[in-house]
């Protein structure tokens, strides 16, 4: 075997190893989704979505948990979106290359890797106890906002970085101020990227369980939150609660709830992909 043949052979081996690795992930995901679908799809009907939780598995629904998740999602968006995007703009456009920005940057990257339960503990101490918000939707949303802020900031910065310097130069050269350049050029050009990042971060938030348990979200809530100060439950906690029950009916409920939660995440990711593609086209 000469050198060329050897290289070709290596090439082939690596190709098949790559295919194998990709397939492992896909197969496991398919088995998981298939299993869940078999267990839970029969349980999903309109009543399951609109029923309150109950001691009896067959009467239970996800209504309060679903509404709790929507409340949490909405409030987290309202808090994390403006704060994260503003911080990203500041770091990328204003504070470039000063020492404080360098320090912030390292910290933000590190924060993105902190386990979510730690955020839960932080939320419990700061929001629930010191700020006296109690185990409310607001406290939960603030905690999740902290959790996803690093992701929002980093993806905002990446999106802004992708805007060509030539566009900024052109804007400045026409007499635009920094803010005008950000508002009229940078944000419209990076909007798709920013939105994609925010949606992906939110779809992570909607699946978070640990920090909300620590903050004090309830496993059983017989009512839907009416204000940010009300107690709440969310889908993942409801699922966790059902799975830990011994009765078979609750296992089926959990599977059904997982399907709905997965559906929500897929839809959100789909929207993110849609925005990304739409904005990319605009550039051409």
């Amino acid at each position: 075997m000469n050198n060329i043949q050897k290289n070709r052979w290596k090439d082939q081996v690596f190709k098949f190893w790559g295919i194998f690795c990709t397939v492992i992930g896909l197969v496991l995901l398919t088995i998981f989704i298939g299993d869940i679908l078999i267990d839970g799809i029969r349980r999903i009907d309109w009543d399951f979505i609109t029923d309150l939780p109950s001691r009896k598995a067959e009467n239970s629904g996800i209504y309060t948990a679903l509404m709790g998740s929507i409340w949490i999602l909405a409030l987290t968006t309202i808090i994390a979106f403006p704060v994260g995007v503003a911080a990203g703009i500041y770091l990328e456009e204003y504070a470039k290359n000063n020492k404080l920005a360098g320090l912030l940057e390292i910290n933000i990257s590190n924060l993105a890797g902190v386990p979510s339960i730690i955020y839960g503990l932080l939320g419990l101490e700061v929001f629930v106890r010191i700020m006296n918000l109690g185990a409310s939707v607001l406290a939960g949303s603030l905690t999740l906002s902290l959790l996803i802020l690093p992701i929002v900031i980093v993806s905002t910065r990446e999106a802004i970085k992708a805007v060509p310097q030539s566009i900024k130069d052109a804007s400045f050269a026409l007499g635009a101020s920094k803010w005008q350049t950000i508002w009229h050029q940078i944000l419209p050009a990076s909007g798709g990227g920013i939105l994609t990042g925010v949606i992906l971060a939110l779809s992570r938030a909607v699946g978070e369980t640990a920090p909300l348990i620590v903050v004090g979200a309830l496993a059983y809530v017989p009512f839907v939150p009416q204000s940010p100060m009300d107690e709440f439950s969310v889908m993942p906690i409801q699922i966790f609660n059902w799975i830990s029950r011994p009765q078979a009916g609750f296992i089926e409920n959990a599977a059904a709830a997982i399907i709905i939660l997965l559906g929500i995440t897929f839809i959100m990711n789909g929207i993110a992909v849609y925005f990304r593609n739409k904005w990319q086209k605009k550039w051409k």
């Binding site: 566009i167 052109a170 804007s171």
Partner: peptide, 26 residues
């Protein structure tokens, strides 16, 4: 003092908006 750059760098906006940009920001 206006400036024209090495590589043509129109904004990703319409032809009209490109020319009107300098006036609108004023």
């Amino acid at each position: 003092v206006g400036m024209v750059f090495q590589k043509p760098n129109p904004f990703p906006k319409s032809i009209f908006d490109n020319v009107a940009y300098g006036l609108k920001i004023q």
